[in-house]
Nucleic acid binder design. Structure first.
Lengths: 342, 342
DNA sequence: ATGAAAGCGCTAACAG
DNA sequence: CTGTTAGCGCTTTCAT
């Protein structure tokens, strides 16, 4: 448990006080901008000079302790490598108040939540906790000890805030798009059932397709890990059968999966989108540009992060109550190959 | 500066001590696992029960203050949206000791370092500081106040550790690859000169091409921002001229730029790789899979992050001296279209 | 206007 | 074995 001690001892308020010939209390007032009307300009100047020459900076640990305040927000995510994580993070930090600092917690190994990761977070004393895409089992195992925000969980929990995408609307848009192109037999690629949001995406699509006379014509392909490689491997084995079964479009619950499917199609010599259209619920803004054949439902992870940040500012700085928000989604259509089928 | 105070007061060691009828010192010993041989099993049990019923967890702030220890490592990066960042982060957290916590600092706006971001970091009291791809001007403006690691800066600074990719080797590999395919007229896409590492990449490629009778045949395309969109926009305007000038291969200093160039080529109807090969110094492991026509020099950002993490463990936990390391790079060739030219 | 003093919650000697 | 005693560096009444 050894950690850094005493690396070139930093100047303390006492050092400054001695040099400026004042008390530490005065130093405190000055560094905290509370000197106005309580400290003479002359003494304040002396203090500031001492601070400069000693390169003094307040010890945030001591300061936090003395004030009984917590200023660390923990962001827990299954996998920092997933674009969803980066985008949420980007949105989050871009709006988070300066007085708050953000610490990252991700599982040591594996690509999904490890309960111990979250408990590691809960062990510290946090101002707030943000959980990216937590699964059901995880949510059931934790009791919040500070304001907690659930991102893209597809669930709500008493006492926690939730922010989710409007997957209903996404299902409508995606179904309209596919039907408009003449697709009636669609395949779905998802991952395990633990995450309600992914289940919701699948359900929304299924309902809307059915309402329009189309169908999820084959059994879902369930990918073991949320990773391109994993989707690639699985798709390689089922895509030929799907095409044989008359499937002309594949929808993926996440863009990472869509990439894997695209790569598998390329490897198998299945032409996209002429022979097979690929669509994905999407978090990666450039995917449509990088792979023009991919139809995207933009889940705007960045905006999700920004909302979370603003909500946190409200809760922590302004003591606002928890909220549950739904974010609009957007269809980015790229698949222009219209087709007519019976 | 308001921050959270007093959200459902947490139990303190004193509360536990009172309930277990022991002193706080004993509580401290128990929670820190130092009870062995210093506390009777019976009292330890009493303490543990009290801890459980009160849901007591040590106040890390107070603990850190009492021990005079810093356990926060700050990771500063220009842009969390860049895959390079995610991968380094992933590598970093996967090996970082449990006693250390990681906080993220990124610029509020813009997509490159903002000096104030780093100074924000320096203001806290950190165990260590990790800077991802800092530019020259930034490095010149800071004096380290804690162990500092420079990642992919292409520079060294006294008192700081540096970890860089072996871009020399990458240049050799890339030149060999291109020449082997028959390319003799190459175009280079980079960004501003402030980052030494990007300059080194360009220089390495240039030197190796020259040594083999090939050449960077056109003036470099300098992209304003490190982003796919930015590269796309710029490439759109110069690619036709490059092709006219006999350029058959484009090398990009970063994979994000390569994506933009690929997209621009697609938009312009330039066939890749038949008409134009695109190669990139690469951090995104799946890029070759997603866009099979892209030749990659894998800079293994994840390994870079892991090295940084191990180095930090060494420095912080074992008091090892600063190091300067170079990481091997690897060519991932995908461009199989051999061509023969004069 | 300034300083003395009392903690914040914890850890680390040192006694007993 | 366990409790007492000092702090860690800072903030904040409350006197002066």
């Amino acid at each position: 448990m050894g950690v850094t001690r005493d690396l070139r001892r930093r100047a303390t308020a006492r050092d400054v006080a001695e040099l400026a010939v004042v008390s530490v209390a005065t130093v405190s007032l000055v560094v905290n901008g509370k000197a106005a009307g309580r400290v003479t300009p002359e003494t304040e100047l002396r203090v500031r000079e001492a601070i400069a020459t000693l390169d003094y900076r307040v010890n945030t640990t001591a300061s936090a302790l003395a004030q009984g305040r917590r200023d660390t927000v923990a962001f827990v995510s299954p996998n920092p490598t997933n674009p969803f994580f980066s985008l949420v993070l980007d949105g989050l930090v871009s709006v988070l108040d300066d007085s708050l600092s953000l610490t990252i917690l991700v599982p040591r190994r594996g690509d999904d939540y490890d309960p111990s990761t979250v408990h590691r977070a809960l062990a510290g004393d946090l101002a707030a906790l943000v959980l990216a895409s937590p699964g059901r089992t995880l949510l059931d195992s934790i009791a919040p000890t500070c304001p907690t925000i659930l991102l893209d969980s597809g669930e709500t929990r008493p006492g926690m805030s939730s922010m989710d995408f409007d997957v209903e609307a996404a299902g409508v848009g995606l179904a309209d798009h596919l039907i408009g192109l003449g697709h009636t037999r669609v395949g779905y690629v998802g991952i395990g059932r633990d995450k309600a949001t992914l289940q919701h995406r699948r359900d929304a699509l299924h309902d809307q397709l059915s309402a329009r006379g189309a169908t999820l014509a084959v059994a879902d392909l369930v990918i073991p890990r949320m990773a391109i490689q994993s989707a690639f491997d699985s798709a390689l084995t089922v895509l030929p059968a799907w095409v044989d079964a008359g499937v002309t479009a594949v929808v993926c619950g996440d863009d990472l999966l869509a990439y894997g499917v695209l790569a598998a199609a390329a490897r198998l010599g299945i032409a996209v989108p002429e022979q097979l259209s690929v669509a994905g619920f999407n978090n990666l803004p450039y995917s449509a540009m990088v792979t023009p054949s991919l139809t995207s439902v933009d889940l705007s992870a960045r905006e999700l992060g920004a909302r979370a940040g603003r909500t946190l500012n409200g809760i922590l700085l302004g003591a606002e109550p928890p909220v549950v928000e739904t974010l609009r989604t957007q269809i980015i259509a790229r698949d222009s190959t219209a087709r007519a089928r019976a």
